[in-house]
């Protein structure tokens, strides 16, 4: 696999693209940008396969996470929308659907207002469902620091949204 054979590389893309896409989408808020970051990251990974030491998924996650951070430093983006999977909506009525769209939009705005490091920690914890230990391993920081970031992110989000949603 590490010899860089194209067909076998497809297996890696299939296996790891969903969590990486979710990370990029929640960090940037734009499906187009998330796709671009994912594409560039996998190309970079393919070109440097020989340099992988340790787990491929952790290595390629760092490439994607750095891609997101670089993009956030130079934001030039446009719209927000989401591609969802094919699962049926659990919201029955149009009112509930509207409510759901509003919550999505409000949470997007609130997430976007967080500093990148807090947004990253919150997304890794609450969207990607990672443990603090795994996050610390991936981001090269301590569990304590990450707990602090997640706590601060929650408190900031709650402060922004609780009036409407509590």
């Amino acid at each position: 696999m590490l010899a860089g054979e194209r067909d076998e590389f497809t297996v890696l893309i299939t296996r790891y693209s969903d969590p990486l896409y979710r990370h990029a989408l929640c960090m940037t808020g734009s499906p187009d940008v998330a796709e671009d970051i994912l594409q560039l990251s996998f190309i970079k990974a393919y070109q440097h396969l020989a340099e992988v030491r340790g787990r491929f998924d952790a290595w390629v996650f760092r490439i994607v996470a750095n891609g997101c951070k670089d993009w956030l430093k130079n934001i030039r983006r446009s719209h927000l929308s989401y591609d969802e999977d094919d699962q049926p909506s659990s919201y029955a009525t149009p009112e509930e659907e509207l409510d759901r769209t509003e919550l999505r939009s409000d949470l997007d705005v609130a997430l976007a207002s967080l500093p990148a490091s807090l947004r990253e920690a919150f997304v890794m914890k609450h969207v990607e469902g990672r443990s603090y230990e795994e996050m610390a391993d991936l981001l090269g920081t301590t569990v304590g620091a990450l707990k602090m970031r997640v706590h601060r992110a929650r408190e900031a989000l709650q402060a922004l949204l609780e009036e409407k949603y509590a």
Binding site: R6, S17, Y21, R22, L38, R104
Partner: peptide
């Protein structure tokens, strides 16, 4: 909040992206 976070957890990479990546990577091993 978890109602929306749950939806985000189910998001998938759009189907065309994998094809785009494979088209973009070099034909020969690096």
């Amino acid at each position: 909040m978890n109602e929306d976070l749950e939806r985000r957890r189910r998001m998938r990479t759009p189907a065309h992206v994998q094809g785009r990546i494979m088209e973009a990577i070099p034909q020969h091993a690096p």
